[in-house]
Design a protein around this nucleic acid. Structure first.
Length: 496
RNA sequence: GGUCCGAUGGCCGAGUGGCUAGGCUCAGCUCUGCAAAAGCUGCUACAGCGGUUCGAAUCCGCUUCGGACCUCCA
């Protein structure tokens, strides 16, 4: 690991790009805030999980042993920050006439399906909030014991003001206690709190509330921020390397998490590198369910959403997202998707070309270039996971492959293998792109010889200058989705 | 209202004190029976106005526009 190109990570906590050094190399602990499973995930959610999929993949690529924890939020949190707010999962359960845990299961399954479609790797541990109620109650006890929590009418709140006297609060999100106080909105049902800044550790449930558990304070449910504090430290230790999530979780969620962990242990911030992925926008606005501009992966692939001119494959979308840096907002548009689709197609075609590329042993003028390309790939990923730069280098590799194919450059067997392993590493392992239409490829194993036969017949017709037969074959195959490519070395075919 | 971020060529998107990614589109050329594919070439941009500097798209200030967070949110 130490002999690799160094890895730099933009740390949200310090606002600096820092050289990555794990607490206990070669082990790396990474926690990412997962989805709340009360409805289908939309594409904006996918972007965040894709961002950390790249982080996970690249760390593995560099040789680290990563424990990746990504939670499932399945406790019904409130729809608003008031006592009369309904819990989201309970609400959905009533609407769909299902048990709350049925809702949780249904949307967890959906989430997993989506992750699979986008080739996003499963985490090492995927803990659920409802499976850690006991631990959450324990942490509340610790927080109370240290004087940072108080009970009020069966609920327990975190005393932000008291905490901020002993520890920095608001460091991650760049907020100051006094500013927060001046700008806190007046919300209903906050009279239980001593201070509007305080947040819930435990909420007493009312009679209609479906998801509730016994506790020393009341029958109720844990506060939203608590589960991540508990599950991250339970599986990764009090101090761990990377904590990730969407930008919109920075405040209050992650700020509260830091406070809870510090408040429970008496030690400061336990996370070395905080990372935040930026939002996916549509027409310049954040994709969100409440905006009505969110679409699900199913709608995307089928093209059934009004915002979509047509359907796009999951890999096209994955590639599209990776052409932008994770820390920048990315605007979703049909034109951009179509551009990405063509680019990805060109990239993948050249990888097919590479496999069949003739290696020459006599002259080899590609060697230096392949070395350079490989270094540029490593540098790009080492610079805060800069996938757009990486992709630009890969397109330079495409150019090189095509030039060899075109006879403008020669490549030795050794260099060809080096190029192949670079491609395998960065395109498939790190970027996680995969060849689409695998089923078709398998099928082509049977029809392949037939197509070869037709192409040969056409070549014969061509050599007889029988253009009408040649064109008839080409047109007929074209209608079946098979493209004939005439090259210097004869004709080949390619399936759409 | 507070805090923070952004504005890049026809489009999408990197980058960054001097040598100006990449993709898509468009035009021309090479190859080709024609076409497709591929290759080559061209299209030189950094919101506006000031300032710092030998030099700024990159640093500083102001202006305009857009966005995020401050409430559940990836």
């Amino acid at each position: 690991m130490s002999d690799h190109t160094p890895l730099y990570i933009q740390n949200s906590l310090t606002r600096e790009k820092e050289r990555f050094a794990p607490l206990n190399a070669p082990y790396v602990g990474m926690y990412v805030c997962g989805p709340t499973v009360y409805s289908n995930v939309h594409l904006g959610n996918v972007r965040t999980f894709l961002t950390f999929d790249i982080v996970y993949r690249h760390l593995i690529f560099l040789g680290y042993q990563v424990r990746y924890v990504r939670n499932i939020t399945d406790v019904g949190h409130l729809t608003g920050d008031s006592d009369d707010g309904e819990d989201k999962i309970g609400k959905k359960a009533r609407l769909e006439n299902l048990e709350p845990m049925e809702i949780v299961q249904k949307y967890t399954n959906d989430f997993h399906d989506v992750m699979r479609i986008f080739n996003i790797k499963s985490p090492s541990i995927e803990p659920s909030a409802t499976g850690h109620i006991v631990e959450q109650i324990e942490m509340i006890k610790q927080i109370i014991a240290r004087g940072y929590g108080y009970e009020s009418n069966g609920s327990v709140y975190f005393n932000v003001r008291k905490f901020s006297e002993d520890f920095p609060y608001g460091q991650l999100s760049g907020r100051k206690i006094d500013d927060l106080l001046n700008n806190t909105r007046v919300l209903d049902g906050q009279d239980e709190k001593n201070d509007p800044l305080d947040f819930a550790l435990w909420k007493k449930a009312d009679v209609s509330h479906l998801m509730k558990w016994p506790s020393p304070w009341s029958e109720g449910f844990p506060g939203w921020h608590l589960e991540c504090s508990v599950m991250s430290t339970k599986y990764l230790g009090n101090a761990f390397d990377i904590h990730g999530g969407g930008m919109d979780l920075k405040f209050p969620h992650h700020e509260c998490e830091i406070a809870q962990n510090a408040g429970a242990t008496g030690e400061g911030n336990s996370v070395k590198y905080w990372m935040h992925g930026n939002m996916l926008t549509v027409n310049g606005r954040k994709m969100a369910k409440s905006e009505g501009n969110g679409f699900t992966p199913e709608e995307l692939i089928s093209g059934s959403h009004p915002l979509l001119e047509r359907g796009y494959s999951a890999m096209t979308v994955r590639f599209f997202m990776l052409q932008g840096h994770y820390a920048s907002t990315l605007d979703f548009s049909n034109a951009a998707l179509q551009a990405a689709e063509k680019g990805l197609e060109r990239l993948m075609k050249s990888l097919e070309t590479l496999k069949k590329l003739p290696a020459t042993s006599d002259k080899d003028n590609a060697a230096a270039k392949i070395d350079e390309l490989s270094n540029r790939c490593a540098t790009a990923m080492g610079d805060d996971f800069n996938t757009p730069i990486l992709i630009s280098v890969l397109f330079d590799a495409v150019k090189l492959i095509n030039k060899v194919q075109d006879g403008q450059l020669a490549i030795s067997k050794t260099q060809k293998d080096a190029l192949q392993s670079m491609i395998d590493g960065y395109v498939f392992d790190v970027l996680g792109l995969e060849v689409e239409g695998v089923a078709k490829t398998e099928e082509s194993d049977e029809t392949g010889p037939l197509l070869d036969l037709l192409v040969n017949l056409r070549s014969e017709a061509k050599s007889n200058q029988d253009w009408s037969t040649a064109d008839a074959i080409r047109n007929a195959l074209s209608e079946l989705g098979v493209t004939i490519k005439d090259g210097k070395e004869g004709s080949t075919w390619d399936r759409e």
